[in-house]
Amino acid sequence: MRYHTPATFENASAIAAAASGVTRFLAGGTDVLVQMRADIVTPDDLIDIKHISGVKDIVQEDDKCWSIGAAVAGAELTAHKGLCADWPGVIEGMGLVGSTQVQGRATLIGNLCNGSPAADSVPGLAAAGAEVSVVGPKGTRQVKVEDIPAGPGKTTLAKGEVISGIYLPPRGKGGGDAYLRFIPRTEMDIAVVGCAVNLRVEGDTITEARVVLGAVAPTIVVVEDAAKALIGSTLDDKALVALAAAASAACRPINDKRGTIEFRKDVAGVLARRAAKIAYDRARGAK
């Protein structure tokens, strides 16, 4: 295994583009090292992106958009007051990843690019409308988070492409988001179902919404019908029933010992309602 420490994303991309064997980028390593240890993936070229300048930065741009570096670990996100105030749902999703020790290393982009359908930070990012910038042999492109996962362990990134940063839009007035997951215990487990809701209110009425499910299909699912159920409502019972039905209907889950298909569909509806209530309260509190 060759270990590389490029100083720029262009160099990181060039190394990956020229590599002929198995290539991995190294951010926090909490997936890469586990896979190496289990002999699932032993990279021929391992490209550590942590020597690139700016990868540890969290910056609020002039337009209030948040720019988060590719090597910012979960613990650093949780410690950032401004970011937590704007996007509590995104941060609570990442905060559920692993233990304190894992939080010391794991990154949002690693969580996204590992391609697990149950990755806890991804629904919240997609609900927030986050985008990543992708540096590749053909230049740089901006991609929506929901367009990166392509199925378990797979992404839409082409050979030689590396993500250089992640961007959360300006929070703006009356916004609130939340993420909830179901696991059979209270800590250190993989989501059986995850659900993120991001919405905006004017007065008590919801004017914008995005609902995203995790762990119930090969990739996260952006549920348009669930968003429609919320928009125009005051989160009354009718809206909540329609929301839950839309969330359950959008599931295409696997059937395993951690949750049957029926159970996962049901829980998706329950979590959607609960997450919507939290997001709604946050949005009105933030008015």
């Binding site: 270990y3 190294l26 926090g28 390593g29 909490t30 090292l33 586990v34 240890r37 670990a73 613990a75 304190t100 020790q101 894992v102 010391g104 290393r105």
Partner: peptide, 9 residues
């Protein structure tokens, strides 16, 4: 920063 040294190279 607290980490697992088995997950650091």
């Amino acid at each position: 920063r607290l980490v697992c040294s088995c997950l650091v190279l």
